[in-house]
Design a protein around this nucleic acid. Structure first.
Length: 420
RNA sequence: GGAGAGGUGGCUGAGUGGUCGAAAGCGUCGGAUUGCUAAUCCGAUGUACGAGUCAAUUGUACCGAGAGUUCGAAUCUCUUCCUCUCCUCCA
């Protein structure tokens, strides 16, 4: 959510920012609505002040058993005006909120300007592409050949975009998640949280998924939505709270399933488990003071990268351009892991600084020298477990169809060398 | 799922139509004092929005949320959400 004062004072700049994010100019419209709203408010409040005063004197007159008919007639007149003005104020306020809640965050000055993913900018990379003396297979070929990855049965149970992992692959998924959580909690300073997977509408509004992206989400019953990422419950932990400075920074992590309708992805990545309605992810969330958020984004990125380094998986980091960046973010780094079977880099983590955008929506502040200031929120995948499993399979595959177990995961497999 | 109770400021908790933005206590902050990791005393202490020479100041709203009754609502009515207790069920 945007600061209306900022838009009021910098309408042209605001429109320019919105343009880089694919939005049409709207500042003037916002300011006009805001102006009417405030003018209405002023008149309304004056009338209410008058009413309160007269009402008070009515009380006094009555307690003295005097006649108050005259005063009561005056108030009657005010009442009618008040009702009309109240309606107008509510109308304008709703209009304003409806517009503001659907506008994306303002990009950070270091975010490259561009229209789509082709204009994302290379930031850095790590490691090298592995070489194979055979033709590397795709992850689902490896999984299906080992009889441990089953899409047909999953589809029988739940439809398309689901998978069943069996035996060693199921264990690999669990091992990866454990490894990630262990590292983030013991080395990187995050506190592990176990959180609800179903949340209320207001929670999703606070983090920015609603009202605009309802189609991307699954609902559960009348009042609940399935979380598309643990970012939702973790970021909203302190909604409607005023934190003390000494509570910050808050760094939390959670291993959860994520549920996404993938409404806009029809026909995309249909084969394999790259794009599922349900997948698991270890999420990192930081709540920090505004001055800290830029450093925190770098820190978070490094924490996520550390997992891939430990797994010895080659990747590159891209800075997303304004047109490709998500709704909430002012800056985002994507980590793309190398998948030899696909012969492509694929997103495995996305680390974003949301500035005060979410904090405004969910009203999370902290006391800074007696002033209440919105905190900054950041989130990042550390990492998407399903996609990490894909990366391990494709990068560690051997010519005989077996898969080596990365060194750091061996302890989860009784020190076995290979998966199957 | 059945029955009941309740939602008030950072916390505990009083308040059943006007003098209530709200007692009291605790906590926190500032000050005074006492020769000592504390006690006592005094004072301050919500949020949002509006008006303003955006400073002093000032107005409005907020007692879970929304609607209503009334000249006037924390207090009455309705709706709704949430919490708790007991029973039932259950990992």
């Amino acid at each position: 959510m945007h600061n209306i004062n900022y838009i009021r004072e910098n309408p042209v700049e605001f429109d320019n920012f919105m343009k880089t994010r694919g939005e049409n100019p709207i500042a003037n419209k916002i300011i006009e609505i805001d102006k009417v709203k405030r003018e209405t408010q002023t008149v309304l409040q004056n009338l209410l002040a008058e009413r309160n005063q007269i009402s008070k004197s009515i009380g006094q007159l009555k307690s003295q058993k005097k006649d108050a008919t005259e005063e009561m007639e005056k108030v009657e007149d005010i009442k009618n005006k008040v009702n009309t003005l109240k309606e107008l104020e509510t109308l304008k306020d709703d209009e304003l909120k409806s517009i503001l809640s659907r506008l994306p965050n303002i990009p950070d000055s270091s975010t490259p300007i561009g229209t789509d993913e082709s204009e994302n900018v290379f930031y850095r990379d790590w490691g090298d592409k592995p070489s194979f003396n055979f033709n590397p297979k795709l992850h689902f070929e490896i999984g299906e050949n080992a009889n441990s990855m089953n899409f047909e049965t999953a589809s029988k149970l739940s439809g398309s975009r689901f998978v069943i992992l069996k035996g060693q692959l199921s264990k690999l998924e669990r091992a990866l998640a454990n490894f990630m959580i262990d590292k983030h909690t013991s080395v990187n300073g995050y506190v592990e949280m176990h959180v609800p997977y179903l949340v209320k509408e207001g929670t999703l509004y606070g983090t920015g998924q609603l009202p605009k992206f309802a189609d991307d989400l699954f609902t559960a019953g009348e009042y609940h939505w399935l979380i598309p990422t643990a970012e939702i419950p973790l970021t909203a932990l302190h909604s409607n709270e005023i934190l003390n400075t000494n509570q910050l920074p808050i760094r939390v992590t959670s291993y959860t399933p994520c549920f996404r309708s993938e409404a806009g992805a029809a026909g995309k990545d249909t084969r394999g488990m790259l794009r599922q309605h349900q997948f698991t992810k270890v999420e990192l969330v930081s709540l920090v003071e505004p001055e800290q958020s830029k450093d925190e984004l770098e820190r978070m990125l490094s924490c996520a990268e550390g997992i891939l380094q430990d797994l010895d998986l080659h990747y590159r980091v891209m800075t997303l351009c304004t047109g490709d960046m998500g709704f909430n973010a002012n800056k985002t780094y994507d980590i793309e892991v190398w998948l030899p079977g696909e012969d492509k880099y694929r997103e495995i983590s996305s680390c974003s600084n949301c500035g005060d955008f979410q904090a405004r929506r969910m009203n999370t502040r902290y006391k800074d020298n007696d002033k209440n200031v919105h905190i900054h929120t950041l989130n990042g995948s550390g990492l998407a477990v399903g996609r990490t499993l894909i990366a391990v399979l494709e990068n560690y595959q051997m010519s005989d169809g077996n898969v080596q177990i990365p060194t750091v995961l061996k302890k989860y497999f009784d020190n076995q060398d290979t998966l199957f």
